[in-house]
Structures are given as structure tokens and as C-alpha cells.
Amino acid sequence: MSTTSTLNAARPADRGPPAWTHWLDLGDRALAVVLLAPAAILLALIIVYPVLRLGYTSFFSLSLTSGLPAEFVGFENYSLMLEDPVFWETTWNTVLITLITVPGALLVGLALALLANLPFGVQWPVRLSLLIPWALPLSFAGLIFAWFFHSEYGVVNDVLMRLGFEGIIWFNSPNWAFAAICLTIIWKTSSFMALIILAGLQTIPRSLYEAADVDGAGRIRQFFEITLPLLKPSIVVALIFRTITALQTFDIPYMMTGGGPGTSTATLAMYIHQNTVSFLDLGYGSALAVVMFALSMCVTAVYLRAIRTKE
């Protein structure tokens, strides 16, 4: 109501209303629709349409290298997937990376945020060093860490050898390669967690701690009774974002190991990329992408449900 009346008031009194303004005389409902339409159309074009199109393509046998036209095959791409050992391996790798790096990044991020929240005299160097890993493009981080973990020229092995250990050929063993990738992802993503948690920390009123001091609660008690409960909303938000990007992990393993040795560190996103961009098998690639989309939606639904029950 208020919107329409303001608009009416703004109308010049002497002349009649210009013809184009008649559509402004809409009810609130209609106006809402009109105002939301541009955003809705844009989202439909750039998100809804591609997702639907992806689902549609996944029911076709469409490979640019076959020289054959697209052919409707129903669920054949999906049944192929079930028998495809590389699909299962890459999916398992993706789940494992998520299970390791999300909690890892949360713990490191929480520690970094608490550290950055300490009353330092000069705050900016701490904040800046938190921002840098987050601002660095993923593929750069992957390249840099690929060199760090290089068996001959890498700084990690150099340090290990100086400490009296034997150097590790990181990318020669699935487990070490996996460890190197997870460490890199945790390094890269914990600063994002830290930034969100830091924002949450700063909303906690100091008076709560002062009151706790008066009541004789120790530092650790304060952390578990005040800090952590009040940080929960920030942590959940950070977890949602981090989990979804973890399920889509591509750049860092792509740059560090290319999925090797063999396919032991390849992720689902890498397998989708390989099937579409390299093998040009758009039908199968789309079916894989639909699975990844479904996986992301499930995780989001679980988190959203978790938040709702909290409220």
C-alpha cells in the first residue's frame, strides 16, 4: 500500500499522469510479481534452464566423437554409471575429501578466528594473512602446493630431510597424494571458515565474558558455554558453503596430481570434466553431473533442516 501511495503522491498535480505510469497502479501482489520478474527470469535463464537442459541431455546418447546424431536412450547413461568402476572411485574420493577437509577446515578456521580475535595491538597483518589464502585462485594454490610437495625440488621434503626423516614421493602413492591434496584444501579453505567465524565472534557482547569472569568461570568454560553456542549460526553457514564446494572439488587435485597415481585421487568433478571436455561424451557427462547436483542438493537439504529445527 505504502509503495503505491508514495508513487501517487509523487505525481505532478497540474498535469494528468503520463500514460506509462498506469501499470504502476497495480495492487501490491501484482507489483511484487512485476518487481521480482527480472530476477526470476534471470535465474531461470542462468540456473533453471541449464539444470533442466542437463537433466534432458542425460537421457540421450550424445557423443561428439561418434559422428552419430543424439539418440534418446532413457536411463542407459545411468545404468552405465552403476557399472563404471571409475564413477564409484571418483565419487568415493569426493565423499572422502569432503569428510576430511570440511571438519579439518572448520577446526583450523575456528582456531585462526580465535587467534585473529585476540586483542593484538596491530590487527591488519593478522587479518591480511587470513585473507590471502582465501583470495588466491584455487588453481594457483594447486600449482604452488604441487611444487611444495614435489619429491625432489619440494620444500616439504626438504624440511622432512633436515629433520632427519626420509623424503616422501608424495604423488607416487594414493595415500600420500590424498594427504597432500587434503592438506592443501584445508590450508586454502580454512581462511574462508575463519573469516565467517570471526564475523560471528565479533557479534558476541563482551559483557557476557565479563559476567562470566565475575561468576568465576574459567577460559575453557567460557569458550564452551558462551563462545561456541553463540557461534553456531556462523558455523552452520560456513559448513554449508564449505561442504558444497568440497563436493565440487576440482582445481586443487587437477593441478596437483591430475587424479593420479592412476585414478586414485580423481574427483567426481574431474571425471565429469574429463567425459565432457576431453571425451566429448556429453550424454554420459550430463548424467554424471546430474548425480553431483543431486548429491549437493541432498547435503543442502540436510543442513537447512538442521537450521530449521534449531529455530
Partner: peptide
Amino acid sequence: RTTVNAVLAGVT
């Protein structure tokens, strides 16, 4: 190429 790589790394 991935199999050669896996064999040389001792995975397979």
C-alpha cells in the same frame, strides 16, 4: 596412460 602411471607408482 593412467594405467602406466599406476603401475609405475606401484599402485597396480
